[in-house]
Each structure stands twice: as structure tokens, then as C-alpha cells.
């Protein structure tokens, strides 16, 4: 049978930016404003979110994944107002999220876990088994698909986490520290996967590893103390590094230079 292409699939996007934040404020805990007046616009592609510890990266990711409600400002995701509770359900079907502390049920197998997440994101019943197999193959876990999660190593668990995030082909994919625990070979494979995903959807990767960002991202977002410091191309970050700063690679020197100049300007 020829597959019918539905009108929804052909409909052009009615938004200019998959992620659009204006003076965004998000609290971590009860009082502390971890994201404090952030203005951010992200298009299609892979965006590397860089920043020191406590810069508000994880809190921003939680707001983008709609887990936490922003306490102020505007946040529009895929053309939908993410502060409005009523429109969350259809929006969440198009999101994929890997949290930094990725919790799991140890008795689930990889396949069962990814299938459960696909079901939670309300994928059509008939599409789930195929989508699960594809996601597991894309992260290279095919031979361990029927092993229980508790028997996997740290790097494999991380890859199972990536599989659950991409299973519904999300239009907005959020990965918080996805490369922790991956060995160098797996990180190279993961970068290839990132570039593939970024061709069609908006991918936000939060990380500490500057070299990951330079290698796999089409765009760099640098934040410090809840605010946007700099947004640009990885090549520009490397160019800043030519002017000095501390670090082992040009990109790392660029990172420290930008942070230092931002801090001294205040």
C-alpha cells in the first residue's frame, strides 16, 4: 500500500523559531531565580548550551521541557505558549527530553522502557514497535535491546536515555549532559547522530565539554548566572580563542575569554 501523507504532515510551520524566550525567569527551588531574564531564539539545528556550574543550564532545560513552569517572561515552544497549561498536551507529544539525572525503572528491558516512553508521549499504537526498534538501532543498543536496564553499564544507560528521547521523532529535542559516561568511540557516533537529528529538528544539548559543541553543534549558546552571554557559530568561538584566554584548545580559550569579558563588564 502507498502510505497516505496527511495534511498535518504537509502543513508548513506557523512559527519562526522552535524556541523563543523573552525575559524568561525560572526558579530553581522556592526562591532562587536560576534563569533570570533570558532572551533566546533557537532555530532548526543543533544548539550547544555551554556555561559554568550554576549558570542555570539544567533549570533552563527543565523549563524548555515544560517540567517546570516559568515564573516570569514569555516562553514559546513550537509556536505554542508553554506557560499555558491547557495547550501543554499536544505540545508535549512533539518534545523529547533526556534529563541530567536520568531515572529509570531497573526491571524494565531497554525495549520495554523505550516503548513505555513512546506510550507516555501518546504515539499511535501501531507506530510504537517500529519506532522503538529504530530508536534502539540509532543509539547502537540493538544487541542489548532485551536486557534489563539494571544490567547495563553507565554509557549504555545513557544511550537508552537518548533512545527514549528520540523515539517519537521530536520537533524539539532536549538533551541534558548526554555524553556523560560515553567512551570516545561512542561520542563520535553520538555526534553523527546529533548532526542527523539537527537536520530536521531543533536540538538543544547542554554540556560541559567544549569540544563536543565545536564538533557537533551548528550553534553555540553561552550562558552565565541565568543570562545569555553570547550566541554564535562554533567557528566564531574558536576565533575568540585566538586572542588569548586559558584552556587547551582554541575553543576552550574562546569560552574562557567570553566568560571573563562578560564578568568584567558587569
Amino acid at each position: 500500500m502507498v502510505r497516505m501523507v496527511t495534511a498535518t504532515e504537509l502543513r508548513p510551520d506557523t512559527y519562526a523559531w522552535p524556541v523563543e524566550a523573552e525575559r524568561l525567569e525560572v526558579k530553581a527551588g522556592r526562591r532562587h531565580l536560576a534563569v533570570n531574564g533570558l532572551d533566546l531564539r533557537l532555530g532548526t539545528g543543533v544548539h550547544g548550551l555551554l556555561g559554568p556550574n550554576g549558570a542555570g543550564k539544567t533549570t533552563l532545560m527543565r523549563a524548555l521541557s515544560t517540567v517546570h513552569r516559568p515564573s516570569g517572561g514569555r516562553l514559546t515552544l513550537l509556536g505554542t505558549d508553554a506557560t499555558e497549561s491547557r495547550s501543554l498536551r499536544p505540545l508535549r507529544r512533539r518534545l523529547g527530553y533526556l534529563p541530567q539525572h536520568f531515572g529509570f525503572y531497573p526491571r524494565f528491558t531497554v525495549r520495554e522502557y523505550v516503548e513505555y516512553m513512546a506510550w507516555l508521549r501518546e504515539m499511535p499504537k501501531a507506530a510504537i514497535p517500529g519506532a522503538v526498534q529504530r530508536a534502539v538501532e540509532r543509539v547502537g543498543l540493538t544487541d542489548r535491546a532485551d536486557s534489563r536496564l539494571k544490567s547495563l553499564s553507565g554509557g549504555m544507560l545513557r544511550r537508552a536515555g537518548i533512545a527514549q528521547a528520540i523515539v517519537n521523532d521530536p520537533a524539539l529535542l532536549l538533551l541534558d549532559e548526554p555524553t556523560v559516561g560515553l567512551d570516545p568511540e561512542q561520542r563520535v557516533d553520538f555526534r553523527t547522530l546529533l548532526r542527523e537529528l539537527g537536520a530536521e529538528s531543533c536540538v538543544v544539548v547542554s554540556t560541559h565539554l567544549v569540544e563536543d559543541v565545536v564538533a557537533a553543534c551548528s550553534n553555540v549558546v553561552l550562558m552565565d548566572q541565568g543570562k545569555l552571554v553570547w550566541q554564535g557559530l562554533p567557528a566564531d568561538l574558536t576565533r575568540f580563542g585566538e586572542q588569548g584566554g586559558t584552556g587547551d584548545s582554541a575553543a576552550e580559550r574562546g569560552y574562557t575569554t567570553l566568560l571573563a569579558s562578560h564578568r568584567s563588564a558587569k
Binding site: 501543554l88 507516555l120 527514549q164
Partner: peptide, 13 residues
């Protein structure tokens, strides 16, 4: 353990 992942899905609520 999986509260953060499940809280962001459409079936939450």
C-alpha cells in the same frame, strides 16, 4: 526515579 521524564510527557496530568 523517573519523575522528571514522566512529568514532561503528554500523559502526565
Amino acid at each position: 526515579p523517573a519523575w522528571e521524564i514522566t512529568a514532561g510527557t503528554s500523559r502526565a496530568g
